[in-house]
Computed example of a mutant assay.
Amino acid sequence: MDSRLGRYQLCNTTGESYRAFIPPPLPPQPSLAFDTELLALLEEANRLLGRLDGLASALPDPQLLLYQYVRKEAVLSSQIEGTQSSLSDLLIHELDEAPGVPEDDVEEVSCYVRALNHGLDRLNTLPLSLRLLREMHAVLLASGRGATKQPGEFRRSQNWLGGTRPGNAVFVPPPPEQLMDCLGSFETFLHDPQTPPLIKAALAHVQFETIHPFLDGNGRLGRLLIALLLVEARVLQYPLLYLSLHFKTNRSEYYDRLSRVRTHGDWEGWLRFFLRGVVNTAAEACDTARQIVALFDADRARLPALGRMSATALALHRHLRTRPVTNAVHATAAIGIARSSVLTAFARLTELGLVREMTGYRRNRVFAYDAYLRLLTRDTEPLPH
């Protein structure tokens, strides 16, 4: 019998029988088979991650990109779960002004940002562990639709995927009484020094999704886990890899690959899919980062021509690099210049085509650093219903 396939446990609830799946511990046995294609993908993925990390480290302020990339990943990951928020929606929401934005959706994305930031902060004092995952889950489900689904607590009841009950579900994770055994083995694997970081991140994501330890938020937390593992292993100093773009773009294959691990033990097929995503997403992130830096330099070079207004315009441009969607209140507080001067600078940057007013209002206007926002929001439109 192939030990990669796990086992099923017959369970009963309200008089109905169903089979819950209990995965074997990681790493897979028999061991992973690395053919020429898989080895080449792993080498290329590691090379491009090194380039992305080096590019970020060479920036005068890596936080410029980090702030936006974390939000891009949050939007993409939440869209996989069906939210209809865009990156622009999130950035407007963070100004406390979200006209027409689906509030539950944008709050869900905002919680994802806070959960990732909490995890990154806690890695300074706490290893990646069940405790940290529970903390992040509490932040992830602090508000919005999941707030009633036991934030920060492992489930004490059976959950399932697809269908209306465990008996007709597409997939049923381990029953509650088996959950801590599965999670204990999972945590041991997180600390395994023998498994290369990228392979560990790929395997751990599938195992977490298979165990499905929470009542809600498992998909989003499982994708957060990838970023945290790569940062903890120092493969990336900053989580600039928005891998959810690959999962969103190839959503059907994503779910099929997860399923084939459970039904066929096809870890190698999952790894090929995962590593192709790392290669493509890291290459795109490098390219986008270079374009953003070039845009900043070119736009800054245009501002001294504004004469007396140039100092205020340069200060506003610095603010827009960190907050590409902003308003006069936030900008005035950030750069410490009189509101009237800030409004004049917005007008001049609008004339130059650097800034676009988003609301059409005469008051409470919201401004976007247009070319920068277009670069950031590529591929972040919600999926069709």
Rank of each mutant, 00 (worst) to 15 (best):
P62S: 07
F346K: 05
I92R: 09
N12A: 12
L39G: 08
D105A: 01
L130D: 07
L376G: 04
L76M: 05
E381M: 13
L303W: 10
A227W: 04
Y372Q: 01
W160Q: 03
H319Y: 03
G219F: 01
R71Y: 13
M309K: 12
T281C: 05
D299G: 10
M1D: 06
D35K: 03
L376S: 07
E73P: 00
A328F: 09
L183W: 12
P176D: 02
A283I: 01
T377R: 13
P213D: 06
M358C: 09
Y361M: 01
P151H: 10
R321I: 11
A33T: 14
A204V: 12
P213Q: 08
S31G: 15
Q84K: 11
R223C: 04
V235S: 04
K149N: 06
E135W: 03
E37L: 15
W270D: 00
G100N: 12
V106W: 10
R260N: 04
A313D: 00
R257T: 07
D299T: 15
L64N: 08
Y242L: 10
D104G: 10
L320F: 13
F186M: 05
N46H: 07
K200W: 13
R19D: 07
P62L: 11
D2Y: 08
S85T: 15
A333I: 08
D181R: 07
S110Q: 00
G167M: 01
V101S: 03
I292D: 02
P193T: 10
R262P: 07
T263Q: 11
D266S: 02
S244A: 10
V325T: 14
P239Q: 08
R362P: 00
F247R: 01
D104H: 07
H191L: 12
G307A: 04
L128A: 07
N364H: 12
T83F: 08
N124Q: 15
D89L: 07
N12R: 10
F346C: 03
A305L: 15
L198K: 09
S17K: 11
H93A: 13
L373T: 15
V172Q: 00
R374V: 12
L48A: 04
N218H: 07
D256N: 14
T14L: 12
E187N: 00
V355L: 11
L55R: 05
G50A: 14
D216K: 07
G360M: 11
R308E: 08
L91C: 05
R220I: 14
L314V: 12
P30N: 11
G167P: 00
I199N: 05
N12H: 15
E284V: 09
K248R: 15
L349F: 13
A338L: 05
L271C: 08
R47P: 02
Y369C: 00
N168Q: 03
H205L: 14
A40D: 11
L90R: 03
F189L: 02
N280W: 05
P197A: 15
L240A: 11
F189R: 00
M309S: 14
N159G: 01
A201G: 04
A98N: 10
Q291V: 12
R145P: 02
G119P: 13
G167K: 02
M180Y: 12
M358D: 10
M1Y: 09
D2K: 03
